[in-house]
């Protein structure tokens, strides 16, 4: 028990040090920007990971909550001039409420049916963003999202925004950790291991799935909020089907049921397109290939896959040594 706690403390400390190091050490605006995007994507992956990795429920429409967060804050603070922080509260409540209404019938489904249900929901929300142009600006996007300010601190500078995003990530990581080590987290993991047994020992699986769906929607909305005020321009494409797929991919590639896996997956999927920019035309081919190859050969994700390879080679070395 205590070993585990100590390990978590060291992990968190290292994480904090790395954030501080990156934030203070990096001066290049472009790099700071990329790292901020990694943070936003990590939030998305963390939320979805709770649902997919721990509760074992697939969602192919999670970008909807990301978009709901972004559009709510954009409309409230951009069009109506409400303080972004109040808009944040509205955005999160809105996403949580929608997750509740949609999750109630959808989470009764399982397997492919659940996948299709969430996909359908995601598509409908995206079409709404595109077609409700008087409010959302339609397919040409929403312009004029104000920047964030908190008293004397302006988040105009890349560095400040970087810290804001990563502090939110840190809090989210701690929250997820707390949930996972609690009664609720255990029940959640039990659904993943065997839903029938979980039901039979008295876990209200449907309610629990709904709760975690709402939680991951909230994280998605927070990510959407941060994204909207960071780029100050949003359009429906940023929240479409491919984004939902990307989110799933982050979770799966990083490794399901691992908080750090979400970070790894988010980093990879954010960096990859940037690196592949050099290949311009070949970007999609390479992206698709990587996705397939990782899934074919390391279905538990890169984190576990690479560890396996490392352990395997170490074993072999030992045998050779003997």
């Amino acid at each position: 028990m205590d070993d585990n706690k100590k390990k978590q403390w060291t992990e968190n400390t290292i994480f904090l040090v790395v954030i501080l190091g990156c934030g203070l050490g990096v001066d290049n605006t472009y790099y700071l920007q990329i790292m901020t995007f990694i943070g936003i994507n990590t939030l998305l992956a963390l939320g979805l990971n709770m649902l997919m990795g721990y509760a074992g429920q697939v969602s192919l429409g999670h970008a909807a909550f990301y978009g709901i967060g972004a559009y709510t804050t954009a409309i409230l603070s951009g069009t109506y001039g409400i303080s972004p922080w109040a808009a944040l509260v509205c955005a999160v409540s809105c996403a949580v409420f929608i997750a509740f209404v949609v999750g109630l019938p959808t989470l009764k489904l399982s397997g492919y049916y659940l996948g299709m249900g969430t996909l359908g929901f995601g598509m409908i929300v995206n079409i709404l963003f595109r077609e409700w142009s008087t409010v959302t600006g339609g397919s040409s996007g929403f312009v004029g999202i104000p920047m964030l300010e908190a008293g004397p601190v302006s988040f105009m500078s890349g560095r400040n925004y970087f810290f804001l995003v990563w502090m939110v990530v840190l809090v989210a990581v701690l929250l997820c950790r707390r949930i996972l080590s609690s009664r609720m987290g255990r029940a959640l993991r039990s659904i993943h291991d065997g839903e029938n047994a979980s039901l039979a020992v008295g876990v209200n699986t449907h309610f629990l799935k709904l709760q975690i769906f709402m939680f991951s929607a909230a994280l998605g909305a927070v990510a959407g909020f941060l994204y909207a005020h960071f780029v100050m321009f949003i359009s429906p494409e940023s929240f479409g089907f491919m984004v939902s797929v990307k989110m799933v991919t982050m979770v799966v590639i990083g490794g399901m049921a691992s908080v750090w896996g979400a970070l790894l997956g988010a980093s990879l999927l954010t960096l990859l397109p940037e690196v592949l920019h050099g290949f311009a035309e070949y970007e999609m081919i390479i992206f698709g290939l990587i996705l397939m190859v990782v899934m074919i050969f390391m279905p538990q994700g890169l984190t576990r896959g690479l560890l396996d390879i490392y352990e395997h080679s170490r074993k072999r070395d030992k045998r050779h040594g003997n």
Partner: peptide, 19 residues
């Protein structure tokens, strides 16, 4: 942990308790 899940109906803490 398995036994703790078995205790699910006899314990109370939920989301807010965990957080």
């Amino acid at each position: 942990e398995n036994v703790l899940v078995g205790m699910h109906v006899r314990t109370k803490s939920g989301f807010w308790g965990a957080v």
